[in-house]
Amino acid sequence: MSIEVRNVNKQFGAFRALNDINLDIHSGELVALLGPSGCGKTTLLRIIAGLETPDSGSIVFHGEDVSTRDVRDRNVGFVFQHYALFRHMTIFDNVAFGLRMKPKSERPDEATIARRVKELLEMVQLDWLGDRYPEQLSGGQRQRIALARALAVEPKILLLDEPFGALDAKVRKELRRWLARLHEEINLTSVFVTHDQEEAMEVADRIVVMNKGVIEQIGSPAEVYEHPANPFVYHFLGDANRLYMGEEHHILFRPHEISLSRNAADEHRPAEVRDIRPLGAITRVTLKVDGQEEPIEAEVAKDDASLVDLARGQTLYFKPKAGVPAHLS
């Protein structure tokens, strides 16, 4: 089911949370709303869900304006950052909740509910936890249960608000890959909110980069990374080095877009090695260049020739391989 966001505005007191937002999400897509905290991404997600009403503008699901429809009639699945499971209910009852709340005429009988819940618990690989209570589960397990609960009513749209935000790094990685696979398997349109650019790049088909209530850029992960529309997007999608080329002129480049050499070479500039950090497959070298306070971070493969016997204090020559000229900044 496609989602269209049309001229949506939202204000909280004097704070402009969303400023004339327009967005098309195609059926079956997995879209990330990416931005720093306070950029309006969660507000937009909640407006799509119907948990928040926009001051103006409309939300259209599959050609049908749902702006005036209540959250419970929009048939969206919503997953909250802090799971929002029902504490006094077992995992089974949590997942069954949506089915049991249906009007009598649509409500499946208990046997059907039990079968459906079992299927969902198997899907999130937690079918052995049915009679536990939420507090007995780990964060990652709780979030998978929250997902199963949201999917129980067979929504056409799944909305996730920082779904992995409260989890530790390892679980987060596992879970987001799992979510991407799950999205492939079940035919859903999904939108998830995140402030983690790596997460957005890894999971999403398209990324919507937001800042201060406006959309800065929409595109595939490769597009927004390779062709950032403006300095904000460039900076937000990854680390950036600023290299001054004279008085008020400088270029931006990513830490990996660099060539290092132990000897003076063409167009290479000398710099002093301040720190060497092996980070697994890559090694990060911090360089101090004459004439600027800001250090340069270089990330090269750990077997790069320039790293052999390199020590702090030595001189290294570097050259940005690519770079965005200063007109962007």
């Binding site: 959250v71 419970r72 929002a84 504490r87 909740f97």
Partner: peptide, 21 residues
């Protein structure tokens, strides 16, 4: 948390059902 009530609404529960259940 308010989210718990919101979660119930998203799952189709009417206000009275949210209160009751």
């Amino acid at each position: 948390p308010r989210e718990v009530e919101e979660a119930a609404s998203c799952l189709g529960a009417k206000p009275l059902q949210v209160f009751r259940h």
